[in-house]
Design a protein around this nucleic acid. Structure first.
Lengths: 111, 111
DNA sequence: GCCCCCACTGACCTCAAGGTAAGTACGCAC
DNA sequence: GTGCGTACTTACCTTGAGGTCAGTGGGGGC
């Protein structure tokens, strides 16, 4: 939605996950719905403003679903859509590669 | 190397591909070695400075190999290392997901 | 009555990634 | 001897993502 036109599919995918906290958000939402406050605790370091912002972008891209309960105090639950779940699956191999890299870095004395 | 410590493997992987042109560079280098000038032509829009910068970072992360031929005029060839090749493979599913998204966007009348 | 908590919103600021433009050293073609 | 091409480097500038901080409205605990 932002860098169009895309050179390749990778380009289009990276566009969606581009944002300092987005992969962490998607990761946190994997197989569980979360309230805003929970998410904030699951993604350490993120501020409320930026979390809201990135959640809205993910929602606009059809990755997360936002469910508002009209109660007091306010309650909002976030969850992955089917598309978001597919994205998470597609991110699997990348995560595995990164894990191997982390292990290699640690072995090399970086950890 | 920049956002350590990582929360998860995905985090570590994203750190490596973080940079406006890196996935495009990796994509261009898939199964072919390239000279600097070729790469510049394959990655439209990138400037010399930034291309050099990102190539150096990818080199430092062990993703690309830089081969300097000590000739005049200068000649340098870039290629993916084994690790880079593995990364590219890991990026495959993400690229496929992105392609599906592109198709969906086009169908929705965005293209 | 006061303050906290929920899920935000808005104004303002910072900083680093990336862009611009110029310079470098050398050989070769003309 | 002027200019081009190679693969860069350097100084400077712009831009926008993300961070900081304060505010919102109403219920519940003390």
């Amino acid at each position: 939605m932002r860098n169009q036109p895309y050179v390749c599919g990778l380009d289009a995918a990276v566009d969606v996950i581009d944002g300092k906290w987005k992969v962490l958000i998607i990761w946190a939402l994997d197989h569980q719905r979360c309230r805003f406050g929970e998410l904030r605790r699951l993604v350490p370091g993120v501020t409320e403003k930026v979390l809201t912002q990135q959640l809205r972008e993910l929602e606009a891209d059809g990755i997360v679903h936002r469910e508002i309960y009209d109660v007091v105090p306010p309650k909002v639950e976030y969850s992955l859509t089917e598309l978001g779940d597919e994205l998470n699956t597609a991110l699997g191999p990348l995560g595995a590669w990164g894990k191997r890299r982390m292990a290699a870095l640690e072995e090399a004395g970086q950890g």
